[in-house]
Amino acid sequence: MRQGFYSGGWTYTLLVAPILILIVIFFYIPVGLAFFWSFFLERPFGGGSDFVGFQNYARVLSDPEFWSAMRRTLVFMVLAPGLAIGISLILALAADRGLRLSSAARNIIIWPKAVAGASIGVVFVFIFDPFLGVFAPLNEAFPGVWNPRTDGNDAFATILVAQIWNGIPFNFIILLSGLQAIPDTLTKAAAMDGAGPWRRIRDIQLPLLTPQLFLTFVLEFVGTIVEAFGLIDTMTQGGPGGATTLLIYKIYVDGFKAYDLSGAATQTALLILFVGIMVLLQFRLEKHVKYER
């Protein structure tokens, strides 16, 4: 039997139609065009496009720059979500235990969520400035130890820290709410049976938190691939020497600054495929997530 508030299917269709139309116009058509252009050599102002089959793919896939951007994206994709979720988890567990000041911390930790990615970038450039920032004293003691303007690893680290800092508030909210939804009775019963705090975390809280952990992982994985753009653009512009050129930034530079529409389209198609595969893999992982309590 049909459940629901409205009797006919048309009402649903009408209600959903505006958003569907917008998604088609602004998502599916551009994505479709990207796949289409990836088989052509396309001139920026139009007027001529040569069908070249898989040549664009062959070129991109044999380009060492593409692979190093891909490698950096992968490293970033593992480190940023891992640390952002790990740190949020520790904070959430601490806040959940009702330690001293935890109610104030719950409030304060969420504030960074209100700061836009590009603004974070601007602030962090200043914080990590080799001459004026927090590590400037270190540079005075050991000249040249810290300089994200010239050292690729330092620059990568600053982007990473900014991304993690940006990700913590949201993950913290989700994980804390997940922890608070775990019935008190379970932890109390475990405590009565003699389980210490670590044991309770490992055997009760973490297993019951898997839905929230899974959610944050899915969102963080996909988010780090695309959201790092604002940070890179404001902090390093992909440099120094390409050390922070993640794939998403390379696509932007190729397409919008260099008018290489075919190259950018091809890499976009590859990025979409890559994200798709990652999400599929994650949903295979979902089989191990326990939603029942």
Binding site: L41, E42, R43, G48, D50, R59, D260, S262, G263
Partner: peptide, 8 residues
Amino acid sequence: RFEKTYQG
């Protein structure tokens, strides 16, 4: 590649 894009 540019040359090829503007072939002709």
